[in-house]
Nucleic acid binder design. Sequence first.
RNA 1: GGAGAGAUGGCAGAGUGGUCGAAUGCGGUGGUCUUGAAAACCAUUGUACCGAGAGGUACCGGGGGUUCGAAUCCCUCUCUCUCCGCCA
Length: 423
Amino acid sequence: MLQLNYIREQKEEAIQKLAKKGFDATTILAEVIALDDKRKSTQAELDSVLAQSNQIAKEIGMLFKNGEVEKANAAKAQTATLKEQSKSLQEQQSKINQDLQDLLVQIPNIPHDLVPAGKSAEDNEVVSEEGTIPSLGETNLPHWELAAKYDLIDFELGNKITGAGFPVYKGKGARLQRALINFFLDKNTDAGYLEVQPPHLVNEDSGFGTGQLPDKEGQMYHVTGDNLYLIPTAEVPVTNIFRDVIVKSEEFPIKYTAYTPCFRREAGSYGKDVRGLNRLHQFDKVEIVQVQSPEKSYETLDVMVKHVTEILRDLELPFRILKLCGGDMSFTSALTYDMEVYSAAQERWLEVSSISNFESYQANRLKLRYKDKNKKNQLCHTLNGSALALPRIVAALLENNQTPEGIRIPKALVPYTGFDIIN
RNA sequence: GGAGAGAUGGCAGAGUGGUCGAAUGCGGUGGUCUUGAAAACCAUUGUACCGAGAGGUACCGGGGGUUCGAAUCCCUCUCUCUCCGCCA
């Protein structure tokens, strides 16, 4: 959620910058400002009515104390009008506040100046590319066939138990999952992130805090019996640790990492893009989250990209880094880098991490603040990224490392898998 | 699932209708003292909105009600705790 002060003071800038996200803010920002004016004047009026009522109430109290009952009863008569007024003003005001809130949550975050213009994934900017794309023999297989061949992942079985998009990992496939999770968590904790295990279900307030609610409800599984949501990413519970918190500036940077399964309804696409591990309803991911001061958040974003880069190097996968264009980035983000690995049998790039700076957009919803030098409360900046999402890493590992003898495991992972080949 | 108790400031914990944004203790911050520290003492110490300021308003789990006036009374929701049952 954007800050009202920013909207009021930098309306033209906001309109111009939001255009990069393909969002025409002209009307809505004008509405917001008009409503906020209304809010201020109504509040002022209400405050003065309440001040009068409070004054009279105090006087009545004194009168009763002094035994001047008639005077007190006379004073009571005065309050009737004030009471009506304050009641009506209060009703107006709560409606105004609700309307204002409803508008504010419809406005996406302002993209950073570095964000390239563009409408879709086509327009993302390739920042760098690294690693060698393996040339596989004619007989190479996509990962879903490799998974079947070595009995690593059973998609059909998941179908039976739950439905499409809920695979069952078996044997070395399951072990590989566990190895990757441990490997990622170790890399992250070595880099100073505090490991946490958050709940996998969250309430409405948490969904709102990170921006999934109210608009993106369709993305999450909703447990209606208890009005809870299955998390689509660890970002939600981990970032919400900081909801309604005022941190000390000495605590920066605050760094958390968590492994969780992620649940996404993802209604939509069909075909080869979603085959195998490419898109699932349940998948595993290790997330990194940082809370930082506004001055340092972009520095931190770079550090996080570098951190994920190192993990990908360890995995010996060819990867590239994209800077997302305005049209492709998320509603809540100010600047996002995507990390993609090359999946050699599918012959395409797969997103395995998305690292974003949300600036104060989430913090404003979360009421996550810190005390600045002047002891004033300011909104923090929040950042997060995947380090890393498992399924597409597994897809690339299986495809890129297939040999006639079996699937080779990268050196860095062997201590975690306990085997160096799947055959 | 059954029965009961409770929700107050960073924490602990008073406060059952009026001057209570809220006693007291602890903690935090600043100071005095000290070579330094501790102790002691003094002061200060919630959040948000409006206002140039003076100041005003709101907030004692959430929502609603009674009243001139509510932390305090009533209704309702949520959550927490204790005991019993069940259970990984």
